[in-house]
């Protein structure tokens, strides 16, 4: 739209499989690093002692998301319609 931006610079860093692999490895390392301190510090709990277990929040985050994705997948079969559903 803007004439000065007609030929924008093109970045392709994320298109290289090697970079994606690096990102993945970095991501997994971060995940491990995040759980390790749980084994060494005393964690507080609000409702149940389970919360103080190492990696509790990692577990909650992962399981919540898996459940949310699966539930919405199932609901999708019921709720999803073609885009022109309301037009006809």
């Amino acid at each position: 739209m803007d004439p000065e931006n007609k030929k924008p610079e093109v970045w392709t860093w994320f298109d290289h499989p090697r970079n994606i692999k690096r990102l993945k490895i970095g991501f997994y390392i971060i995940l491990v690093l995040l759980v390790i301190p749980d084994f060494f510090i005393h964690k507080h709990s609000n409702f149940s002692s389970v919360e103080a277990w190492p990696g509790f929040y990692a577990f909650v985050g992962f399981v919540s998301c898996v459940v949310i994705i699966l539930v919405s997948k199932v609901l999708g079969y019921v709720l999803k319609r073609k885009e022109d559903y309301y037009d006809s």
């Binding site: 991501f27 971060i30 995940l31 995040l34 759980v35 749980d38 990696g55 929040y57 990692a58 577990f59 909650v60 985050g61 992962f62 919540s64 998301c65 898996v66 994705i69 699966l70 997948k73 999708g76 709720l79 999803k80 319609r81 073609k82 885009e83 559903y85 309301y86």
Partner: peptide
């Protein structure tokens, strides 16, 4: 932890999240 493992779930289940041309 909560956020990064949510991200893990997202990328592991990416095939289930494939976009479809639909409305809900």
């Amino acid at each position: 932890q909560l956020l990064m493992f949510s991200a893990l779930a997202f990328f592991l289940l990416l095939p289930l999240l494939k976009r479809t041309e639909t409305i809900s």
